[in-house]
Write a protein that binds this DNA or RNA. Structure first.
Length: 275
DNA sequence: AACATGTGCAACCGCACATGA
DNA sequence: CTCATGTGCGGTTGCACATGT
């Protein structure tokens, strides 16, 4: 027994949208707002699948979209975010007002990949192309000062004094939190070298069984306290991270708020909400 | 001019997750 | 708890246009 299709395919148009279809969709959403995409096509008099309508609206018709070329600043932002988040296009798009995940994804595949390669960097790992073999052996460790559970909010990107960068040998690829305490930096000079984000690092998460959806989806107690975006919990990159540091808003840490907490950040129990 | 190849982007597809009955 | 349904995401495809031969 399979899942029923999202729409009656035999009676829906596919392919490029016509001006008339666009107008119908725009007019309907202006009058009724977004939502209930499944019923929207019929209500709007469109022979389209609801998903198709949603995509067309989000990626092309939304009035707040910024069309046109990406600026150099946007390029660098995308590169930085991709180095941290991987192919989480929707999350990256959330940091770039007026840009859509689809647009960024296309732009990445057509321009930025090439740009990084021309810089001698691996587009996936953001590390030098001739050094990718060692990437998988790199682990970040964070000092645990409060929360026992894995929480993306706990990632402290700028507060580098809380974590170590550890490069393991090929035989020792597993990041083990049990090593956290004995690997803390011992002097401030060493810590200062970490004060800027090392954007060549790809941050992924240790596949903690205790925090994966499959193991905790139905267990309220096992859920991280701050109700994280679960994408982070399953996000993986070439490096493994044991995360236990204090939380700080990602956008603030990336410098989008000039070091101030953004308006979206709310402090809860000493943790800042990811926004 | 005609064809081949490359490029960019809109749109589609399938899956996973969220939610409500 | 289970199931059905709606929504969102990431990967992929296919077409239009640009460029090269």
């Amino acid at each position: 027994m399979g899942r029923s299709p999202c729409c009656e395919k035999a009676h829906t148009n596919k392919g490029a949208w016509t001006k008339e279809e666009d107008d119908r969709l725009i007019n309907y959403i202006r009058a009724n707002g977004e939502g209930c995409w499944r019923s929207l096509p019929k209500a709007a008099g469109l022979l389209r699948c609801g998903k198709s309508c949603r995509l067309r609206w989000i990626n092309y018709l939304r009035p707040d979209l910024k069309r046109g070329n990406f600026s150099e600043e946007e390029d660098e932002t995308i590169i930085k975010l991709h180095s941290l988040l991987g192919n989480k296009w929707s999350l990256i798009a959330g940091r770039l007002p007026g840009r859509t995940d689809n647009e960024i994804k296309n732009y990445w595949n057509t321009h930025i990949k090439r740009k990084l390669i021309s810089r001698g960097l691996d587009p996936q790992t953001h590390r030098p192309l001739n050094a990718t073999a060692t990437t998988a052996n790199t682990c970040l460790e964070f000092k645990n000062d409060s929360s026992p559970s894995l929480d993306i909010n706990d990632i402290t990107l700028m507060d580098q004094s809380k974590f170590n960068l550890i490069t393991n040998s090929a035989e020792d690829m597993k990041c083990n939190s049990s090593t956290t305490e004995e690997t803390q930096p011992q002097n401030s000079g060493e810590q200062k070298s970490y004060q800027a984000i090392n954007l060549e690092l790809s941050i992924g998460l240790v596949p903690f069984q205790s925090v994966t959806r499959s193991s905790s989806a139905n267990s309220a107690e096992s859920k991280p306290q701050n109700n994280l975006p679960d994408e982070f919990l399953t996000a993986r990159a070439s490096t493994a991270v044991a995360i236990v540091a204090r939380a700080v808003c990602l956008c603030c840490q990336l410098g989008f708020q000039n070091g101030q907490l953004c308006s979206n950040c709310q402090s809860t129990n000493g943790f800042y909400r990811y926004c």
